[in-house]
Amino acid sequence: NQASVVANQLIPINVALTLVMMRSEVVTPVGIPAEDIPRLVSMQVNRAVPLGTTLMPDMVKGYA
C-alpha cells in the first residue's frame, strides 16, 4: 500500500509547510503520495489541517 502525507501537527492556513509538519502513513482514502513531501515544503494549505489529517491535493495551494 502506498503511504500518504499526513499532518504531524495542526497546520495553520497561510503558513509555509516544513518537513516537521508532515509524516508518511498508509491511510484510507489515499492522499498526496509520501514521495511528494519534498515538493510540498514551502507550499501552503488553503484551510487549517488538524493533526492526523491526510493531506489531499485540493488542500495545498499550487499542488494540483
Rank of each mutant, 00 (worst) to 15 (best):
M22R: 00
P57H: 09
M21L: 04
D58Y: 11
D58H: 13
D58K: 09
V30M: 15
V15N: 08
E35L: 09
N14A: 09
L19S: 07
K61C: 15
A3N: 06
N1T: 15
N46A: 15
K61R: 14
P50I: 05
M43I: 04
L17H: 00
A3H: 10
V6W: 02
L17S: 00
V45D: 00
V45P: 03
G62W: 10
A64N: 11
A48C: 14
I32Y: 02
L40Y: 02
V26Y: 14
V45A: 05
G62V: 04
G31K: 00
Q44N: 11
D58I: 09
Q9N: 06
Q44Y: 15
Q2P: 13
V5R: 01
I37W: 03
M59V: 06
G62L: 09
M21S: 04
A34E: 08
L55T: 01
V5F: 02
A16R: 11
L51C: 14
P33C: 07
V30Q: 15
M21W: 03
K61E: 09
Q9P: 00
P29G: 03
A16E: 09
T54K: 04
V30Y: 14
I32L: 05
N46D: 08
P29S: 04
M56R: 11
Q2Y: 15
V5D: 01
G62E: 12
A64R: 08
Y63C: 04
A3R: 07
Q9W: 06
R47S: 08
A34L: 03
N8V: 08
R47T: 15
N46P: 02
A3I: 07
V60F: 06
T54E: 01
L40K: 00
V41M: 07
Q2H: 13
R23T: 06
V60G: 00
N14Y: 07
V45Q: 00
N8Y: 03
N14Q: 09
A7F: 03
A16G: 13
A64Q: 14
V26T: 12
R23L: 04
N1F: 13
R47P: 02
E25I: 06
A16W: 10
M56Y: 11
S24K: 12
V15H: 11
R23W: 03
M22Y: 02
S42Y: 08
E25K: 08
E35S: 12
R47D: 06
I13T: 14
I11W: 02
L19I: 08
P57G: 07
G31T: 02
V6S: 02
V5P: 01
I13P: 13
M21F: 04
P50G: 07
N46Y: 12
T28N: 12
A48V: 10
N1A: 14
N8D: 11
V15T: 15
M43T: 04
S4E: 01
N8C: 08
K61S: 14
G52L: 03
L10D: 15
A3V: 08
G62S: 09
V15C: 06
T54Q: 03
A3G: 09
N46T: 12
I32G: 01
L55S: 01
P33A: 08
V5T: 07
P50T: 10
P12R: 07
N14H: 14
Q9V: 14
V15A: 13
M22D: 00
R23G: 05
M43E: 04
A48E: 14
P50R: 08
L17D: 00
P50N: 09
D58R: 07
T53P: 02
S4L: 01
A34R: 05
V20A: 14
L19W: 12
A16I: 10
S4I: 02
M59Y: 09
D58C: 13
P12N: 14
T28I: 10
I37D: 01
P29M: 04
S24I: 08
L19H: 06
A34Q: 06
P38V: 11
S24T: 14
V6T: 06
N1W: 09
Q2L: 14
L10R: 12
Q2G: 15
N8F: 03
V41F: 06
G52V: 03
N1Q: 14
N1S: 15
N14P: 00
V41D: 02
T28M: 11
I13S: 12
A34N: 05
S4H: 01
M59C: 05
V49N: 02
N46C: 15
N8R: 09
P29Y: 03
P50C: 07
L55M: 15
M59H: 09
Q9L: 12
N14L: 06
V49M: 06
Q44S: 13
K61H: 14
L51D: 10
V15W: 14
P50H: 06
T28D: 15
S42M: 12
M43S: 06
